[in-house]
Design a protein around this nucleic acid. Sequence first.
DNA 1: TGCATTTAATAACAAATGTTATCGCCAGAC
DNA 2: GTCTGGCGATAACATTTGTTATTAAATGCA
Lengths: 192, 192
Amino acid sequence: MFDQYKNRFPIDEKQWNDYISCFQRIEVPAKTTLLKEGEISKKLLLIEKGCIRVWFNNNGKDVTFQFFFENNTVASIESFIKKFPSPVFIETIEPSVLWRMHKKDVDRIMAEIKEIPVLRDLLINSVFDRTFDYMKHFLSFIKDTPTQRYLNLLQEKPQIIRRIPQHYIASYLGITTVHLSRIKSKLAKEKK
Amino acid sequence: MFDQYKNRFPIDEKQWNDYISCFQRIEVPAKTTLLKEGEISKKLLLIEKGCIRVWFNNNGKDVTFQFFFENNTVASIESFIKKFPSPVFIETIEPSVLWRMHKKDVDRIMAEIKEIPVLRDLLINSVFDRTFDYMKHFLSFIKDTPTQRYLNLLQEKPQIIRRIPQHYIASYLGITTVHLSRIKSKLAKEKK
DNA sequence: TGCATTTAATAACAAATGTTATCGCCAGAC
DNA sequence: GTCTGGCGATAACATTTGTTATTAAATGCA
C-alpha cells in the first residue's frame, strides 16, 4: 500500500517506517458507519480498496456530498482539525480495506513535516487544491443545470457514475432520484 | 489603514514598514473592472472603502459568486497563485479606495513569513478557513431552498443585502431577479 | 433455489422556478 | 427642473423539478 509513495518524499528510511507504522489496517463490510454526526473525528482514513461517502442528515433527508475512492484520505476535516462535533456521517458504500491513523500521530507528523520546506509547501498546496476543488464544484451549482452537472460528472469523475448507487448520486447533484432518472432517459433518447 | 493590524504580528518596525510600503493606494469609481477574464492576476487588492464583486460570464449571463467589503483582500486566487488565466472578472460596485500590491512583493513577503512559525500557521489556517467557508456555502446549495439561502444571507451577511443591488444578489443565490423578488414579497406577507 | 431488500424506471400530478413583458420609482446627468 | 437609465415589483405563461405511488429488475442472503 505505501511503497508507491515511498520515494516521493525527502525523508529517511527510519522516519518513513515510523510514519507508516502509525497506520492500522482494517477491513469493513459495506454500509459501515465510520464516523457519526456529533462525534469528534479522531482518526484519519486512507482507502486501500472500496469507497466511502460523506453525508449528513438534513431534516430527515439523507444528503450525500462527497465520495472517496482508492488512495484518497478521508476525515470530517472541520471536526478533525478544529475538534468540532462532526456535522457529517462517514460510511462505506462497498466492502472496504482501510488504513487508520490516530489524530495524535497525524498531529505529530504534521508538526514534523512542517519543518521540511518541500513537504510544508506540499501540505499548503494540497489545502489550496482542495479549496479550488470546492470552488469548482460550488460554481457548477450556480451556473449549471442538473443535466449539465450530470454530464460534467460523467466526464470528470466517471467512476462515481460507475460505482455509486444512483440515489446517492442524485443527492450529490442536488436533485431527486426521479429527476436523475428522467435526465438519463432524456439523454438516452437524444443520443438515438 | 494599516495601523489597526500593526501589533498583531511578531515582526519588527523595519520589516513592517517594508511590507506596507509595497501597497499602493488607488481610488476608483463604481463599476470599474479591476481584472478581466483571461488575464493573469498579478496584483493583490485590499479594500479600504467600498465593495467589489467577482463574477464570470456564463454563456452571456452575468453570474456573481463573491462579494468583498472593507478590510477584505481580493484576487482571482487560482490565477494569482497558479498563474492561470483568470476565469473571472473583478469589478467595483461602489466607488472604492483600494490598496494594491504586486505579486512579486506578495511572493517575497509570503516566503519570508513562512519562516516565522506564528505567521506560517496563521497563513495555513487562513487557507483552511477559506476552504471551510466554501464548503459551507456549497452545502447550502445542496440542502437549502433559495428562500432558506436568502434568509441565511440576511442573518449571516446582512451587509450584502443592504449594500448590493438585488440582481447581483439573485445570481449569487443561484436564482433570477424575478424569483428573488417573489421570495421577498412572500416573506413580507408571512411576517404580517 | 427462493425470498427479502435494494435499486431504478415511469406515470400523474403538484409545486417551484424561469421567461418575457410591463410598469413605476428614483438617483444622477444635463 | 426634466430626462434618462438602472433598478425592482408584478403578472401571465412556460418549463423544470419535486412528490407520491407503482412496477420491475437486480442483488444479497438463508
